[in-house]
Design a protein around this nucleic acid. Structure first.
Lengths: 232, 232
DNA sequence: CCGTCTACTTGATATATGTCAAACCCATTC
DNA sequence: GAATGGGTTTGACATATATCAAGTAGACGG
């Protein structure tokens, strides 16, 4: 791990407030690895041996049951994933695989738990982080339970639109089938949902999205900070 | 608040490890109130002024969007609710209403945050609690995304069955329409799902449930600790 | 430049779930 | 004991979504 990567990790809210010596001890015990795409990093049900930090690339969190599979989230740098399992010393609830070539830091869970027991800055940061994660999942549930697939898509596109600084043209950075799964629908249904948004000025060709009139789309999407705002 | 109630609250994992003086100071600033059924205790979007602790009764957490409403969870004594909003000092993501006559303790959020800043036992307990809550919502999402409504119902009934100590007859302690909403379906659909479980030995008359053969039902439900186990 | 692969799309169809209206069943009240 | 009212059930129907099968398009490697 080079110095700039260490700095990036240190800058994460979760690590920012901890004592230097504890952070360094955490880093000393860590492993860094580069993974090719489509590698399963962890499997649900396994004990959580490491807290993962993604430095570059992209990782999909997914869950399975009875031969069905669903994408739960896509994680992008720089951030940690599967924090709750590490804290609780409980089995992973989700599996993770790389979507692209990715660089991942592995922090032994025992080290994390040990340091969280002695470092109050760290444990306070964890409280904030977990509260945020919790709220994120609740928002996701609300999206799923209160909206149809077309409404979910409309809101997803609006979010991407604002991430592209409001530019009317932007790219999808994930495969459509992953987007579909994340939003709880099939790829075929996503295709049709995209078509259904055409009257609202949405054109998608390949990975290129064009939103003619965001207000028009918003009239359908009715975005709500209590569902769609990643902060708050 | 009487002494036995204070003891019950103190026994909650979240409060168990904090210093006596901090717990007492938290309690001194608290309010206790009895509410009749169907009272809206908090509304989503409002700033989170209090951490709530339910002492007796039952509270429904629900969310709304675009004139739709969905039950997110039912909270029963003794436990806290809307912890994450209090910690983050962020608006509630869910509303809450009493389902029955309920006794609720209100802890001012500023007090909670202030004490969590100085009491390490409390902040560590919060980490564990929030990690648990997070995992709870993730499990709920998996249930929603990976299962059909009949499968969700089958698993719900198996869970109630084991809560009734494996007794083949037990009572539903919530209205069916709330159960339906919690599981992401309409009351009509729930009615039909119940019928669909008849071949698996499930009979429901009013609030009485009879499960002839739990193994038979489990062959359909395929319960999974990574979805259905409230612990782990 | 051509084949190959994989994601994506499309159409036809099936299934799941929602909606609406009416009937029903209790429980409560007057 | 009749009337009221809310929750539940049922049936008929509409809509949303999934499935299956085929075709298309783009990316990649030879």
């Amino acid at each position: 791990m080079n110095e700039s990567e260490t700095t990036d990790i240190r800058a994460l809210p979760i690590f920012a407030e901890m004592a230097d010596e504890n952070f360094e001890s955490l880093m000393r015990g860590s492993y860094v690895q580069n993974f090719p795409p489509q590698i399963e990093l962890i499997s649900e049900g396994e004990p959580s041996d490491f807290l993962h930090v993604i430095i570059s690339g992209a990782v999909e969190l997914f869950a399975s049951w009875n031969d069905r599979e669903s994408t739960m989230a896509i994680v992008r740098p720089v951030s940690t994933f599967i924090l709750a399992a590490t804290i609780k010393d409980a089995p992973y609830l989700m599996s993770a695989r790389t979507l692209e070539k990715s660089r991942i830091v592995l922090l032994p869970s025992t080290d994390v738990r040990q340091i969280y027991d002695i470092d109050n800055g760290f444990s306070r940061a964890l409280v904030t982080e977990l509260a945020q994660c919790y709220r994120g999942v609740v928002k996701n549930s609300k999206d799923l339970k209160l909206r149809t697939s077309i409404e979910r898509l409309a809101n997803y596109l609006l979010k991407q639109h604002s991430r592209a600084n409001g530019n009317c043209a932007f790219e999808l950075n994930i495969e459509k089938r992953k987007i579909a799964s994340q939003m709880g629908m099939t790829p075929e249904n996503l295709s049709r949902a995209i078509k259904a948004l055409k009257p609202y000025g949405v054109t998608v060709t390949g990975t290129n999205v064009h939103i003619a009139d965001a207000d028009d789309l918003a009239s359908l999407a009715k975005p709500d900070p209590l569902i769609d705002d990643p902060l708050s």
